[in-house]
Each structure stands twice: as structure tokens, then as C-alpha cells.
Design a protein around this nucleic acid. Sequence first.
DNA 1: TTGAAAGCGATACCAG
DNA 2: CTGGTATCGCTTTCAA
Lengths: 339, 339
Amino acid sequence: MAKIHEVAEAAGVSISTVSYALSGKRSISPDTRRRIEEAARELDYRPNAGARMLAGRRTQIFALTEPFRADTHAPAHMAFVLATSIAARRYEYDILLLTEEEASAGMRRVASSGLADGVLVLDVAPDDERVALARRISLPTVFIGVPDDHDGLVCVDLDFEAAAALAVDRLAGLGHRSIGFIGHPPTSYEKSNFPPRVRRGLEARASELGLACTTVLPENDGPRRASVRAAVRTLLDGGSTALVLHCDDTAHAVALDELAALGRRVPDDVSVVSVGATFDTSAFHPAIDSIPLVPGASCELAVELAMRLVEREEVPAGVRLIAPEYREHGSTAPPRASD
Amino acid sequence: MAKIHEVAEAAGVSISTVSYALSGKRSISPDTRRRIEEAARELDYRPNAGARMLAGRRTQIFALTEPFRADTHAPAHMAFVLATSIAARRYEYDILLLTEEEASAGMRRVASSGLADGVLVLDVAPDDERVALARRISLPTVFIGVPDDHDGLVCVDLDFEAAAALAVDRLAGLGHRSIGFIGHPPTSYEKSNFPPRVRRGLEARASELGLACTTVLPENDGPRRASVRAAVRTLLDGGSTALVLHCDDTAHAVALDELAALGRRVPDDVSVVSVGATFDTSAFHPAIDSIPLVPGASCELAVELAMRLVEREEVPAGVRLIAPEYREHGSTAPPRASD
DNA sequence: TTGAAAGCGATACCAG
DNA sequence: CTGGTATCGCTTTCAA
């Protein structure tokens, strides 16, 4: 816990010179800069956080609000928290965690106490109560996800509609005429708003291209995931030559397992594409093509926007949709001639 | 962002009176206290975080170091992060998240910048590098988990040995003479140090009581979890009349599913007890007795200890083991007379 | 029971 | 290119 004046003394300069040398906010002669840096290093000096906040009017902290509701899918949420934290560190920012009721109350609290320079909002619900809060506080706020009512907000998300359309384009391009869609359980279509966006995107593009498209939303039942297995059989029986998956990792694994059990090879007999997954689809057997939801991409953009807001740059409100990217892993091919 | 002097003005007192009234650190006449509280409420006043840290030499922040390694079991880790955050809020403390490389580097950083009053260490590895760090920094540090070398450290954890012994006692008390143990995959026994503690506790107590005890550590294979199913069959064939589970939730579900498939009813034909689970075993079919690992219990104690350290109370170093608790859900019974 | 004022440890303005 | 110093907003002694 060395203080600035100790560094100044050790380097034989004034404290203001130390401050400037370390922040780089004005030019310093190479020699004194060297002496200061050395002194700072030897004393393991770091500016006192509180003093810096007070004098510099910057806390170097972003509040991250993530309710961690009981029913949330832990791995995906953890990936976003991690990605946010990593992105923030690039700008020398730390993450202060606001969970549960504090997800909302904490926003008010950090805003009026000046504990954070901005707020990043995760696990956004369609009718999220943090929307109203974001409008009332004066802190820069960026949503990672898109609430239904997003007027005047800065939001970042994957372009799920485009991602789904991209999957259809790929399959249509290979000659498939009938696509089966396995989605999340029905309840997910109310609690979040990206599952419906995927579904809409898929069905819209399929109908544009004149493809048949059948949707099944299997329940998350027991360890055998019988609904997922049934879904696979239903879709194949219905004539689908390709499957698009937008569901959890276990459902992916089970669907592939069922295909194998039915003796259908991927991609020779059936093509498979995953949409919006945060896990690694290349680790499945067989590896699956994916148009992933990349936490790093959303979070880096969100943090960059938050930084710009902190720097008082002009940042127009609105939704930034991240363009989807197709990752080939060999799970798609033209349909069998016999189909 | 109202400031203290505005509150003072509104209440017609000096700023020091406001400070004391709000912190309760000295007695204030009921009348002025009321006026101050009202003014504070109307202005939505909260002390500026930076100023408070600087003047009060308290940041009201705990750093939480949690690497979030790629291979970590997300749901359990999320539960601990959440529990820590909730426990901290009881003392009006916030949680600053240090992940990845920052899990270590960040500890040094917050220590020398005075950003946090203490450090809470999660996801503790047997040979954790944060052990050495904790000894070098002067910040109060509490480990939630027990590293191999914990000399001079303050650690909190479930008493896994006792939990395992408790499971054996229960089954032995019901008359079981042969117990089957299904554990985590073998690799887990190197990366963490609680799986071996459960195993040791179980085998030790079983041998004390003269019970037979067979251990299987099934791999985490495909979606069918064939290894887990095989483990169940192996143990039953070997004469086990009761199963003790210390594995992930899916393995639990699969084991129960396999028992059902074999026509063995719980608890009439087989008794089942779960040890060290962070998930809800009463939600399985059938519900399973559990001696759980309760994140709230560990984290509350850890935070309490951290607070005491912050308050400069005497806190002897050492490992605090939390006594296990048996939760009945009807999955145990005496073995069949025919066995 | 209350108030005045001295810090806390930086940043950044104003001078030189 | 470098230094002195006012300032940030609060906590806490010291006085009354």
C-alpha cells in the first residue's frame, strides 16, 4: 500500500509528476519517467482506488447485473459473466456483481453512490424490470440481450433471425427441401425472447425459399430425454432431410445419439446444423456445424459501447445486432438422391 | 448523486451530524435524526463510494476470486458465487469479480490499490497458486475449500469425511451390510480435493463398522452415460443393497433411471443416499435422501469470518469444517429380508 | 447533543 | 518539462 508521495520521494520529483508519468497524460522526459516507473515498481505502487475515484471521477468499475434466477441455464450464463469480465479488463475495468434482488436495487444503489461508471445488463427478459431503471438512472447502461421495450436503450445481441436464416440458406443451397427444427422447451419461448427470434427467422426464410419446415419443441424430461428422441423420429418420418438444432447441449448429444441408434449417418443420411449454441459443437460425435452465440462477441461490443458512453462520446441508442458466422465441421451434405 | 452538504442544508444541521446520524456512530436527538433521515430519503442520498473509501478506510467490497476454468462444473460454481454475493450483502458488502488470470493477478492488484477489504477464494485446487498469494498480501483472505497446504490460512468447507460417514451410519443403522459407491470420474480426484475426502470418509467408516464397500468411478461418457448404468449393475450384482452417490446431477438421474429399468424399486429393493450434492435431490423420481453441500452455509461462514478479520477481531487460522446434515426424502429402508 | 475542521490520497488546473 | 496546490466528498477527532 505505498502512496504516491513515497514514489515521488524515491524518484526525486513531485507527486504531480508521478501522477502524470504513470497516467501518461502529459509528456515526461525519458529519464524522469524511467526513475518514476522504477520507483513505482519497487514499491509495488498502485494508486489508491478510493482516492482515484474521488479525484478522478472515474471508478474503473462496471456493475454487472445478472439475476441468476433459479431456472437459468448455468453454463451459458457463466460464459457471459466471464466474457464480460475479460472484456472489461482490457480497459482496466473491474466487474462488480449484482445478483438476485440486488440486480435491480443494486443498479439504483451504484448509480447514486457513484460506485460504478456504468452498468452491463445480462440475462435480459422480454419484460425486464431493469429497463425502467436504466431509463431513470443517469449511468451509462448497455443491455446484452434485447427486451421487448427497448426504446432509447443501447442493446447488443446476436442477430438470431439472421443466424437461423443462414442455417436455412446453407441447407437450401445443398439441395434440402424439407427441414426439421428442434427447439428449446415451450416455456423458454416466454421467458426469453431469442428462442422465438430463432424460430421466426427459420420459418420465415424457409417459407421465402419454399422449403418445408417442421418445428418440434421437446420438453426437458428425464435423463433419457425421450421427447428429444421422439422429436428426431417424428421429423425424419415426416420427410425432413436436415435438422436444425436450437436447444441445450444435452439435447444436442441425445439427438445425435438417436440418429446413430436409428442407423442414420451424419451427414450422408441427415444434415445437422446447430444455431445459437454457446457450447462447443465440434466436440460432439460427429462434430456439428454451428452458427454459434459467441459470448465474447456480444460482451466485447457491449463493453466497448459502455466505454464510449463513459468517455461521453456520442453513442446513438438502438439495437446492435451481431452478424452470425457459419462454422463448418462437416455435418452437412446434399440430401441422398433417393430422398 | 446528492451530496452530504445538501442533506445537511435540507435538515438544517452540519455535515458531521448527517454523517453520524446516518452511520449511527453516535447518539443523535430523535428529532434531528428524523429530519436528517427524511432529507436523505427525499434526495435519494447515498454517500459517495470513493469519498467513503478514502475517508473511512473501508471499501465495503470483497474481491471474489473464481478462475472459472473451462472444465469447471458451471451450476455448482454459479451457486457458490451467488451464495457469496448474498452473504456479503447482509453486511452491506459488494462483490468484485476476479476471473481467469485475474484470479491471481487481481488479488495482488486489489490488495495494493485498496480496492477491497478482503478476498474470498472459490474453486480451490489442491495445489492452488492463490495460497502463496494469500500469504503475501496483507488483506484478510478466506478460502472456501481446502488446499493441500493450508498452514496459516482461514478455510471453510463442508466436512466431507463426516458427510460420507453419516451416510454409512444411516445405512448401517438400517441393517445394510454391503454398500456400493458411485463417485465422480477419476480425473476429478486429482483436480479437486473433496472427492477423495468423500471416498476416504466412506471407506474408513465402512471398514470401522465392518461393512463391505465397493467403489466405482464412472467416466463421464456420452449422453447415455453408459458407464454410470454399468456401475449400477456392477454394484447390485456384487451384492450391494444400498448405493451412495457422489457425482453430478445427470449421473444421479441416470442411476435412478437404470434402477427403474432393472425393476429395482427405491427404497424397497435398494436404498440410495446422495452425498455432497449442490442440486435438489428431492426433485428426482423418486426423491433421494441427501447429505448436501450447501453453498449458503459455506459462504455465509466465510463472509462472517472475513468480516471479523476486517474488524480486526482475533480470528485464529485453521480449517472450519461444517457439520453435515441428513435430509430424509424416503429413499432409504432396511434391506430386503431375502438379501 | 452538535459543529468546525483536519485529513484520507489521488487528479488536474495554473504557473513557471 | 516540472511543481505547487485546490479539489473531490466523506469520516472522525477535537471542542463546545
